[in-house]
Amino acid sequence: MKRAFTSLALAATLAFTYTAVQAEGCTKGAVVGGVAGHVAGDHGVAGAAAGCAIGHHEAKKKDKEASAAAGASESAGK
């Protein structure tokens, strides 16, 4: 029970301490990955690290697609 509370407290702390310095998508991915890793067999830290990497990758991909769509709409208006 103590481990579950510690993991939950860590996830809540990560969720509420998001700052602009952190990589976009990392905090959300770390929280989700940490919880999933904990549930899957006490691998919360590894799950948080993997979730951070995946979340950051997905956020960059989303930004790249949004930039491409904005560029396409600007060139179509000319």
Rank of each mutant, 00 (worst) to 15 (best):
A12P: 12
A30S: 14
G34V: 01
A9L: 15
Q22L: 03
I54N: 07
K28T: 11
T27N: 11
A23L: 14
L14T: 02
V21S: 05
T17W: 04
S7G: 14
L14F: 01
T19P: 03
L14Y: 00
I54L: 15
G47C: 10
G51A: 13
T19W: 02
G34R: 09
K64Y: 03
G41A: 11
C52D: 10
H56A: 14
L10K: 05
K60R: 05
A11N: 09
K28H: 06
S73K: 15
V31E: 01
V45G: 02
V32W: 10
G33K: 00
G55Q: 02
T19H: 04
A53F: 06
A70S: 15
T13N: 02
A70I: 05
A15I: 09
A70Q: 12
D63W: 00
G37H: 02
Q22R: 03
Y18G: 15
G37S: 11
K61I: 11
G37C: 11
G29Q: 07
G37E: 04
A50V: 15
G51D: 08
H43K: 13
L10V: 03
C26I: 03
G47L: 11
G41I: 05
S7W: 00
A70C: 08
K61V: 13
A36E: 09
G25Y: 02
G33M: 03
A36H: 06
A30L: 08
A72S: 13
Q22D: 09
A23M: 08
G34T: 04
K64H: 02
G51T: 09
C26G: 00
A12R: 00
Y18K: 12
A53T: 06
A66C: 10
V32T: 04
A9H: 05
G25H: 02
A15G: 15
D63Y: 00
E58T: 14
G29Y: 02
G37N: 05
S73D: 12
C26V: 06
A72N: 12
T13V: 00
H38A: 12
A12S: 14
A12E: 08
K64R: 06
A11C: 14
A68E: 06
A40H: 06
E58W: 05
G55S: 10
A23N: 08
G33A: 10
A69N: 05
A40S: 13
I54W: 04
V39I: 15
L14P: 05
K28Q: 12
G51R: 09
C26M: 10
T27M: 07
A50C: 11
A40L: 13
A9P: 02
D63H: 07
K60F: 11
A69R: 11
Y18N: 12
D63E: 01
G71K: 10
A69Y: 03
A59Q: 04
D42S: 14
H56E: 10
